[in-house]
Amino acid sequence: MIDLVIDQRRKDLGGFEVGRVLPYPQRRMVGPFVFFDHMGPAEFQPGFGREVDVRPHPHIGLSTLSYLFEGSITHRDSVGAHQDIWPGEVNWMTAGSGITHSERFEHLRANGGRMNGIQCWIALPVEDEETAPGFVHHGAEELPSYESGGLSARLIAGEAFGARSPVKVHSPLFYVHWTLAAGAQAQLPAEYPERAAYVAQGVVEVEGRQFHEGQMMVFQPGHPVLFTAVTPAIVMLLGGEPVGPRFIEWNFVHSSKDRIEQAKADWRAGRMKLPDADDKEFIPLPGDPPPPANPMS
């Protein structure tokens, strides 16, 4: 019933490491989930450098979903959103026809502390790839939750376990945060054709095998999956209906290669609006020369 096991690949993004899981050569997507990064865990001291921040950059054809276990991120984008995200909350940004945003670690820089969370990209169905861009934030108290027998569960997005998240999605999917006490058991039902589970912390046992932090299990369809926590654990469940293959280049995701080329040209030519509250710098297209220094920044 386990079709594939993916080990995260650690990548340094400039003073900050992430564990990249999706896309993977043998498995580009799980349902509409086309990108999955584990941010951290990392410990920051007060006053760390601004090179850790993610400067303004563009997206098309997808939604981003940021979810934290520890720490905080300040989001600013070109539709006017300016939002801090804290553990258990949801930042859902729909790029659609095009959006730019930045992610900065302002509270951590001021106070120090740990950063630990997941960022996903979710491909939009073909009919919604050019939808109007937008942003929504949901507090932890808005999300359906459940506790029993050493299991604490929160439905982040989509529908699962008879519940529906208030986060507006564009295709059938599920994304769930499980926290398991040692010895606790929980079952993933067989209701979606594509399903996976990522161990964000601890060790779990599935089908007589143990899996540890940084590993994703991708499951065959049609069978429920039983998890047993060997240690206290955090497991992220994800999947849904497939939306078809996608091209991915830099921060652009789309069903059309030509549309990605157009987005690259638009970004290179400065035709994509920067966030109003963060427009003094940006990340150039990979391979392009860096932008000239802005004497006003």
Rank of each mutant, 00 (worst) to 15 (best):
L188W: 08
G240S: 02
A186Q: 13
V218Q: 05
M236N: 11
G183W: 07
M236Y: 09
P189T: 15
V203D: 01
P242N: 09
R259H: 12
A181Q: 15
G240V: 01
P245R: 01
F252G: 05
P232W: 02
V204C: 02
P232F: 04
F211P: 04
E191Q: 12
P245Q: 05
F219W: 09
P193F: 13
A190C: 03
V235Y: 00
A190N: 09
E207H: 13
R259D: 02
V199R: 00
F219R: 12
E194F: 06
R195S: 10
G208Q: 12
F219V: 03
V230D: 06
V199W: 02
T231C: 11
M217A: 13
F211I: 08
H212P: 10
G240M: 00
E194I: 03
S255M: 07
A181P: 05
P245I: 09
G214P: 06
I260R: 00
F247D: 07
Q220I: 01
A181W: 02
L188H: 01
A263T: 00
V235E: 01
M236G: 05
Y192E: 08
Q187L: 10
Q220N: 13
Q215D: 00
A190K: 09
Q210H: 13
E261P: 04
V218P: 01
F211R: 11
H223V: 02
G244V: 01
E213R: 09
G239W: 06
E249P: 04
V243I: 11
Q262I: 01
A190W: 04
Q262L: 10
R246A: 09
F247I: 07
G208C: 10
A233N: 03
L237Y: 10
E205K: 10
P189L: 10
E207A: 15
T231N: 12
H223A: 15
A196E: 05
A200F: 01
E249K: 15
G244L: 04
Y198N: 04
A229H: 02
L226F: 07
G208M: 11
F211Y: 15
E205D: 05
L238K: 08
D258G: 07
E207C: 11
P242H: 09
E261G: 14
Q220K: 15
V253K: 05
R246W: 03
P221E: 05
V253T: 11
H254R: 03
W250V: 08
R195C: 03
M236F: 12
G208N: 12
A184P: 09
Q215A: 04
V218Y: 09
G244D: 03
R209H: 14
F247K: 12
R246G: 08
Q210M: 14
L188D: 11
R195D: 06
E249N: 13
P189K: 10
F227N: 01
Y198R: 02
G222V: 04
H223L: 09
P242T: 04
F219I: 00
I248F: 11
V206D: 00
G222F: 02
L188G: 02
F247R: 14
G183Y: 06
K257W: 15
I260T: 07
I248D: 13
R195N: 05
E205T: 08
E191T: 15
T228N: 09
A184D: 07
V253I: 10
A196P: 02
A200Q: 05
Q201Y: 06
V206F: 00
P221Q: 07
T231F: 13
A197D: 10
R246E: 07
